[in-house]
Simulated assay, not measured.
Amino acid sequence: MADQQELPEGTLQNLLDQETLKWVFVGGKGGVGKTTCSSILSILLSRVRTSVLIISTDPAHNLSDAFQQRFTKIPTLVDGFTNLYAMEVDPTVEHEDVGVSDGMDSMFSELAGAIPGIDEAMSFAEMLKLVQTMDYSVIVFDTAPTGHTLRLLQFPSILEKGLAKVMSLKNKFGGLFSQMSSMFGMGDELAEDALLGRLEGMKDVIERVNMQFKDPDMTTFVCVCIPEFLSLYETERLVQELIKFEIDTHNIIINQVLYDDEDVESKLLKARMKMQQKYLDQFYMLYDDFNVTKLPLLPEEVTGVEALKAFSSHFLTPYQPASSGDPVERLERRISTLRKQLNEAEAELERLKSS
């Protein structure tokens, strides 16, 4: 890969240019702006792809807040778009979809509950089955914080272990299975189909998708972080886990970066900038072969389609702080800012004197 240090700044243009991409995961520590980044990425992809689906797998769904539109577990067209869909998935088993009798359903629940992580894995498999029946050009995952994301990547092995455990129970207690199935008024074959068929079907789906996840032409993982120690640590942990799972990752978004603009007079902000610069240097040193995209900290939240579209320009063109302009213009802007601050302070002083 080309040396990123030769480039002024990285951008996410590489994701738009990679036409073979089918799955794009966006993840990182909580509170770093994953939902905003994944939402903007899906908007940018919708400009170059026939159809895009963005899925939130975070239990604390923020996708509805980002787009200011209510989403459910059914893909819904995002307002203002003709080819961008969104859905929010809860990581719990939806037993109403099992399609067997109440007695069999509760027995299935008990078995599922005995295997750690199987409920989430099955829920994820159900969602992937649903997604695969629809023909989306690319699917963007707005994932839960790092720990949940790593569990999500372990689901194929969890399902495999779950299936093996159920099969061993069946072999040990075959007679009991038969008795229970006759108690619920079903033949042996139907009972086995209900219990094992569903797990087997899910395992097939998730294994097929898992092969795609490990194909760098089809899948990539975008790590979102902020220039602070804990976020740097979490990002490194995430990158190492992705390497272990053989999942491609070559894009890092560093969000909420403070720039030394001409109107920054605050000692606190200047101290934060100095601290951030230390971690930015470490990010560039650790990930010199990654596309590292820096995004500025804004004074307001980026919510609503128009705000997301406006902010999206920074994903494709490196942000230029006002301080990088002509020195005379910078000084004039600084004087203008100071005058405004002085006028506001004088007005406040007069208000306090007269009260």
Score class of each variant (00 low, 15 high):
residue 2 A to E: 15
residue 6 E to N: 11
residue 8 P to Q: 15
residue 13 Q to R: 15
residue 14 N to R: 13
residue 18 Q to E: 15
residue 22 K to I: 07
residue 28 G to L: 06
residue 28 G to D: 03
residue 29 K to C: 01
residue 30 G to N: 02
residue 30 G to A: 04
residue 32 V to D: 01
residue 33 G to W: 01
residue 35 T to S: 08
residue 36 T to H: 08
residue 40 I to C: 12
residue 40 I to N: 06
residue 42 S to I: 10
residue 45 L to C: 03
residue 46 S to Q: 01
residue 46 S to L: 02
residue 47 R to Y: 07
residue 48 V to S: 03
residue 48 V to M: 12
residue 48 V to R: 09
residue 50 T to V: 01
residue 53 L to N: 03
residue 53 L to C: 03
residue 55 I to G: 00
residue 64 S to P: 05
residue 64 S to Q: 05
residue 67 F to A: 02
residue 68 Q to V: 04
residue 69 Q to I: 01
residue 78 V to Y: 12
residue 82 T to M: 12
residue 84 L to M: 05
residue 88 E to I: 10
residue 91 P to D: 00
residue 94 E to R: 14
residue 98 V to L: 13
residue 102 D to R: 08
residue 107 M to R: 09
residue 107 M to W: 07
residue 107 M to A: 07
residue 110 E to A: 14
residue 111 L to Y: 09
residue 114 A to Y: 02
residue 116 P to M: 08
residue 117 G to R: 02
residue 117 G to H: 00
residue 124 F to D: 01
residue 133 T to Q: 09
residue 137 S to E: 07
residue 144 A to W: 00
residue 151 R to A: 00
residue 152 L to M: 14
residue 153 L to V: 07
residue 155 F to D: 05
residue 157 S to I: 11
residue 159 L to C: 11
residue 162 G to T: 11
residue 166 V to T: 04
residue 180 M to R: 15
residue 180 M to C: 15
residue 182 S to Y: 09
residue 184 F to L: 07
residue 185 G to Q: 06
residue 187 G to W: 07
residue 187 G to L: 08
residue 191 A to V: 13
residue 197 G to W: 12
residue 201 G to N: 09
residue 202 M to I: 06
residue 203 K to S: 12
residue 206 I to L: 15
residue 207 E to R: 02
residue 209 V to Q: 01
residue 211 M to I: 15
residue 213 F to T: 07
residue 216 P to A: 15
residue 227 P to G: 04
residue 229 F to R: 14
residue 233 Y to E: 05
residue 236 E to G: 05
residue 240 Q to S: 14
residue 243 I to W: 11
residue 246 E to D: 15
residue 250 H to A: 10
residue 252 I to V: 13
residue 253 I to S: 05
residue 253 I to Y: 03
residue 254 I to H: 01
residue 258 L to F: 12
residue 259 Y to M: 02
residue 260 D to Q: 08
residue 261 D to I: 03
residue 264 V to G: 06
residue 266 S to M: 08
residue 268 L to C: 00
residue 280 L to K: 04
residue 283 F to V: 10
residue 289 D to M: 11
residue 291 N to Q: 06
residue 294 K to A: 06
residue 300 E to R: 15
residue 304 G to M: 00
residue 305 V to Q: 13
residue 307 A to H: 07
residue 308 L to V: 11
residue 310 A to E: 13
residue 312 S to P: 02
residue 313 S to I: 12
residue 314 H to T: 06
residue 316 L to E: 07
residue 316 L to C: 03
residue 318 P to G: 10
residue 326 D to R: 04
residue 329 E to H: 09
residue 331 L to M: 12
residue 333 R to K: 10
residue 335 I to R: 03
residue 336 S to G: 02
residue 337 T to V: 12
residue 338 L to A: 09
residue 339 R to T: 14
residue 341 Q to E: 14
residue 345 A to I: 09
residue 348 E to K: 14
residue 349 L to S: 13
